[in-house]
Design a binder for these strands. Structure first.
Lengths: 335, 335
DNA sequence: CTGAAAGCGCTTACAG
DNA sequence: CTGAAAGCGCTTACAG
């Protein structure tokens, strides 16, 4: 690797001290009261020598790196991929870099990634926490590290979070199915204690109870690790009861994709045989036989708000834990 | 933020020098000839004090950061998202972190991202280069920075690259359409000088020429920035000629998605009215009326090979530029 | 067997 | 108006 140009190189070329060069290049010539003319010479020289500051040296000295650590559960999932993309884009516009890490929905890996990003001196974390990641998040919050939870949160941890109103959203998605004429509506959802999942479940139940249509057996809980087989079993069950369901709410993007594949395999026609609605956008929803209705989370806004919240904390604005719950739209509804 | 425990803190607690602690914690006690017993005490203390090395300080001192910079054109595209995921996963298993940046197919942004990652002292780059990014890549290669180009390359730059054999793959995708009975086959492809695109184009042309079916007017070139309208125009054109096409090859993931949406909007039935095949996997291909055939690039292998190549360079194994061209499979073919 | 010292590339009080 | 010095947290020759 070509040896890089350092501050010192410029200082030597011009014949001044490192300090003077540093001051000028950081726009602090006023404070250093460097003469305009000298400042100009230094700037010219820096450009001519193709100088670029060593971000690590600066971070080490300053104790902050202008970097945000983002931990998602699976960056290859379209929903999180888009979220990460927006976060990167917006943070970049504010002069912050983002390092993305994956937890794979694994608590131990999330913990490890937090540690690794800490070692890299990130200034704060935006995290989509894992099911039992409460302890790790709690440690972070207690040690005063800036944190924003995204998409999910924990009841007991009072920190900043940005997500949609899952209860209301799930309720209105369910009401959509009711309005479509469904009489027996199923839910396929992750078995999870995370409140955002509970709220999706509760919103679903609420809509059905209001309409006297609530049947607990129509709720199928599945595991992330064995998603494919669990979904097949769940759908088989929902279809082969004496009172088979005529509508299903899918509580996540991946659940929707796997379920739709299996419904297709079983030759269930959507929407004539079965009406459905899913969470989170996916190219696939626009391309199936009929467009699949889905809950569209405001991804760009969620990204922007979480970046704003993390930067406010980093820049030490006193900030009470802010809980942001946005509204989500239903898309691809039949006319 | 809680003040972190440093090497020095451990040294003071135990009453030895920083050097001794550093040696032990890096497993170099043999070289330092530290007594077994002392080494053990130091290790215990480090754990007890919850010590974690400051990666930036180490990187500054060592001149390398154990970090790979990955520049993709769009991390929200499913193909690149999966590639990035695999790269991160495999690099992590080898003790390297990955910082992902997006160029948005924009040469200037790619250049800026390269500089930013350089400032962060990444040890090497895996890059999916932009159309006219040749200059930036060339500078990198000339300055002996470890580089691997992924998915694309430049004729004139003799550096490492990992991609599929686009000519052969495109040719066999086209042959698939021919075997399906198509007589007039169109291609929708990016207007691009990048050789991987040219090869997809040439492979397409070759298959048709061999079968006496080559019609230049059936090749539609579109721009990435105006993809949606260009595709609509291209498809309108292919459909409304006196000799409308009965098959189309989509030369990229995004092209396939947009095209399929528009074909659906125009009520073209696939595959009865029109047979198609696309590049790169997408959930949508499994969920359309009939599964959409597509070229499946060996994503995990491409990721792994590019990581191996970049690490070999970083670790200074003398290495002639390695050009890897993998074979890609066709998926979702009708039985 | 172990310590003292230098240095990676910065920034920032301090002194003049 | 500007320089000398200290220090961020490490690692590594060097000296003993």
């Amino acid at each position: 690797m070509m040896t890089r140009v350092s501050l010192k190189d410029i200082a030597q070329e011009i014949g001044v001290s490192n300090a003077t060069v540093s001051l000028v290049l950081n726009g602090k010539e006023k404070e250093g009261r460097v003469s305009k003319e000298l400042a100009e010479r230094i700037r010219k020289k820096a450009v001519a020598m193709n100088y670029h500051p060593n971000a690590m040296a600066r971070a080490l000295r300053m104790g902050s790196s202008n970097t945000i650590g983002l931990i998602v559960t699976d960056s290859s999932n379209q929903f999180f991929a888009k979220l990460a993309f927006r976060i990167e884009e917006y943070a970049d516009s504010l002069g912050y870099s983002v390092i993305v890490a994956n937890s794979n929905e694994n608590d131990a890996k999330m913990e490890r990634m937090i540690q690794e990003l800490k070692n890299r001196q990130v200034d704060g974390f935006i995290i989509i926490p894992t099911e039992n990641g409460q302890g790790s998040i709690n440690n972070l919050v207690n040690s005063k590290v800036p944190v924003v939870l995204l998409d999910r949160y924990f009841e007991e941890i009072n920190t900043h979070h940005v997500l949609i109103d899952n209860f209301k959203t799930s309720r209105s998605a369910t009401e959509f199915l009711i309005n479509q004429g469904c009489k027996r509506i199923g839910l396929i959802i992750y078995k999870s204690e995370l409140p955002h999942m509970q709220e999706r479940r509760n919103g679903f139940a609420e809509a059905l109870k209001r309409n006297g249509m609530y049947v607990p057996a129509f709720i199928k809980e599945i595991n992330y690790q064995t998603i494919e087989e669990n979904i097949q079993k769940a759908i088989d069950d929902l279809l082969t009861r004496i009172d088979p369901v005529d509508g299903i709410l899918f509580a996540s993007n991946s659940i929707a994709i796997h379920s739709l594949k299996y419904l297709m395999k079983r030759n269930i026609n959507i929407p004539s045989d079965m009406k459905v609605i899913g969470f989170d956008e996916n190219d696939a929803f626009d391309l199936s036989r009929e467009p699949i209705p889905f809950v569209q989370q405001p991804i760009a806004e969620m990204g922007k708000l979480s970046v704003d919240l993390i930067i406010k904390q980093i820049e030490k604005e006193a900030l009470n834990p802010t809980h942001i719950e946005l509204l989500a739209d239903l898309q691809n509804l039949p006319n």
